[in-house]
Simulated scan of single mutants.
Amino acid sequence: MKYAEIKPGYIYTEERVITDEMVRSFAEITGDDNPIHLDDDFAARSIFKARISHGVLTLGLVSAVLGRKFPGPGTIYLKQDAAFRRPVYINEKIKIKIEVLEKIEEKSRLLLSTSVIKENGEEALTGQALVLFKEDEEE
């Protein structure tokens, strides 16, 4: 999508499933091997009763949407505020929702609402992102 075509109120959504492999890879890459994410027995005794995804892994999927799908390649993250509201469990389907709140024309920036919604409709993550978006000049 071209910057000129983006309007406040536009909503982009995408569904993903948080897999065991994603969680284990994220733990290995970051070193965050908290047993709430990796150990079934430990997690079963927790307030969550089962293993959960890293919150930042879930937020990383928002980043992937911003950089690849909407607004797309060339997007530069300038700021992200996020609140982790509910856990996302292993093998749970989520919906990533990005909504354009404001377009700042003179700086090619977008203020976006960012959220992750669980398959039961509860919000797992809410926040706002400020991004710089200038599409490739060759498009």
Results as ranks from 00 to 15, higher is better:
20 D>A: 04
21 E>P: 10
22 M>F: 15
22 M>S: 11
22 M>A: 12
22 M>I: 08
24 R>N: 08
24 R>T: 12
25 S>D: 15
26 F>I: 08
26 F>M: 06
27 A>G: 10
30 T>R: 04
30 T>Y: 03
30 T>C: 06
31 G>L: 04
31 G>K: 08
32 D>W: 06
33 D>M: 09
34 N>W: 01
37 H>I: 02
38 L>D: 01
38 L>I: 00
39 D>Y: 04
40 D>C: 05
41 D>C: 03
43 A>R: 00
43 A>M: 02
43 A>I: 00
43 A>L: 02
44 A>S: 07
44 A>F: 01
46 S>D: 00
46 S>L: 01
46 S>K: 02
46 S>N: 04
46 S>E: 02
46 S>T: 00
50 A>Y: 01
50 A>S: 06
50 A>N: 03
51 R>A: 00
52 I>M: 01
52 I>A: 03
52 I>P: 02
53 S>A: 09
54 H>V: 02
55 G>K: 03
56 V>F: 10
59 L>P: 13
60 G>I: 11
60 G>L: 08
61 L>I: 15
61 L>D: 07
62 V>M: 08
62 V>S: 04
64 A>T: 14
65 V>P: 05
65 V>W: 09
67 G>Q: 06
68 R>T: 12
68 R>D: 13
70 F>V: 08
70 F>W: 06
73 P>E: 11
74 G>N: 11
75 T>L: 06
76 I>T: 14
77 Y>E: 07
78 L>H: 12
79 K>I: 13
80 Q>R: 15
80 Q>V: 14
80 Q>A: 13
81 D>K: 14
81 D>S: 14
81 D>G: 15
82 A>F: 12
82 A>C: 15
83 A>S: 10
83 A>H: 13
84 F>N: 11
85 R>Q: 13
86 R>F: 06
